[in-house]
């Protein structure tokens, strides 16, 4: 029961990070770099928190969730590096 409660608390924290990180991309005043930072908050940190919550909820699915977490962090990191590199090109 406690574990269920803790996992739902982490899940709501992850959802809050999703909302906070996704809403600034509608604002046209921010630069693309700030948007990349907030997308990192949403897509890496929020999603990893959701993965942790799902692991606490259903521990028998750990191989699936571990593969998800590793691929998520690797892809998102390389992706934001490449997008930063494109936007920061000296023209």
């Amino acid at each position: 029961m406690t574990i269920t409660f803790v996992s739902y608390a982490i899940l709501s924290l992850g959802l809050y990070f999703w909302i906070w990180g996704t809403l600034p991309i509608l604002n046209k005043e921010h630069s693309i770099f700030y948007k990349l930072h907030t997308l990192t908050v949403a897509d890496s940190v929020g999603s990893l928190l959701i993965v942790v919550a799902l692991f606490l909820l259903a521990p028998q699915y750990w191989p699936l969730l571990l593969v998800t977490a590793i691929s998520l962090s690797l892809w998102n990191t390389i992706f934001s590096y490449i997008l930063g590199n494109i936007s920061d090109r000296p023209s």
Binding site: T22, I32, L39, S47, I50, L64
Partner: peptide, 24 residues
């Protein structure tokens, strides 16, 4: 560039909806 970033974010979120639905 921004469009690619937003599209990847959309794909990420959709995949997470499916994963959490499967586990629920």
């Amino acid at each position: 560039t921004e469009r690619i970033a937003y599209a990847s974010s959309f794909g990420n979120k959709l995949a997470f909806i499916i994963i959490s639905f499967g586990i629920f």
